[in-house]
Simulated assay, not measured.
Amino acid sequence: MKPLRVAVVGAESTGKSWLTQTLAGVLRARGQAVHTVDEVLRHWCDRAGRTPQRHEQMAIAQQQALAACPPGQPTPESWLLSDTTPLMTAIYSHLLFEDESLYPMALAHQALYDITLVTGLDLPWVADGLQRDGPQVRGPVDTLVRQALERSGMAYRVVYGQGPRRLNNALVALGLEGEDAAAQEVREQGQFAINQGRSVWQCNDCSDPGCEHTLFTRLVKQRSAS
């Protein structure tokens, strides 16, 4: 299958980072070249120690767009998986500041992706410091995301499910085969190694209660106690 440019968007605490990184891991295990794009806002808030003000929103959206289109990357032979896009910055600017001026730029960038995955609201909300406002904003954000995409005539797929089911639903949405039991076991063993400290955890504290980070951290503690 020809590599795709994939945007993962959705309300807060719906597993965007987990889904992006886990999809990347599966694709790499299948021999595919993958370029991932992190969420710029998360790093911005960590550096500034606060959330951005209205006049700072456009610069963040532009940085997010540039991160997805760096010079020379990705190549036509590489998948691109973007953990959020400028569209989410535009959504929050609209919701928090009643500023709709970012939509033209954000939607023009969104049109560069082959497919947009919208993460569903079926995961529990989990606090994440400055990064998340509260469960009450998830519904309005989800609505604004869908309205913006539909208004622009952009197709999207909503991804639901817990843990492996969520991953498999995303793979199917991309036109790929889901993981079988053997492939899932290999990936889970890799996550177990991560939690033993042999490499760095990459999920940015995902909100999926059934994810490998939670399950295998518990196993490590049980083994240490025995």
Rank of each mutant, 00 (worst) to 15 (best):
L87N: 09
A148R: 03
Q62R: 07
L95R: 05
L167G: 04
S226T: 12
D133C: 14
T14H: 01
P140H: 05
V200P: 13
Q32N: 06
L144R: 06
V126C: 05
S199M: 15
G178I: 01
D180R: 05
L215R: 15
R54G: 13
N169V: 06
I60R: 02
T85M: 04
R30N: 09
L95W: 07
V145R: 06
C211N: 10
A111V: 14
A90S: 02
T75K: 09
G190F: 11
T84Y: 08
V26K: 07
D128C: 14
G31N: 04
Q57G: 06
S152D: 15
N168V: 00
V159D: 04
R157A: 00
E98Q: 13
Y160K: 08
T89C: 02
V200L: 11
P74C: 00
G178A: 00
L80Q: 01
M58Y: 06
M88E: 07
A155M: 10
V159S: 02
P3F: 06
H213S: 11
G10P: 09
Q73F: 14
I91C: 10
L121M: 03
A193V: 14
L107Q: 01
R30I: 08
A65R: 11
A65D: 05
V37I: 03
L174D: 03
L4D: 00
Q63Y: 13
Q53K: 15
V9W: 05
L144D: 03
E12H: 04
T89I: 04
E179I: 14
Q63D: 11
G15E: 02
A67R: 04
Q62S: 02
V141D: 01
C203R: 11
D205H: 10
N204G: 14
S82K: 03
I115F: 08
E77H: 10
D122Q: 00
R28I: 08
R218E: 09
P71N: 03
H55C: 10
L66H: 07
D83E: 08
S207L: 12
A67D: 08
M105E: 11
T14I: 03
L167C: 02
G175N: 02
A33S: 13
C203E: 14
A68W: 01
R146Q: 09
R50D: 00
A155R: 14
L117I: 03
P74Y: 01
E177M: 08
S224Q: 07
G161N: 12
Q73K: 15
Y156A: 06
T217E: 11
R5I: 07
R5Q: 04
P104L: 01
Q110D: 09
G190V: 10
D114V: 02
E77T: 14
S224T: 12
R146P: 07
R28H: 13
E77W: 10
R30C: 09
T36W: 00
L219D: 09
H55I: 14
R166Y: 01
D83R: 07
L176P: 01
T85P: 03
V172T: 13
H213E: 15
G49C: 02
A183V: 06
G161P: 08
P140M: 09
V172L: 08
T116N: 01
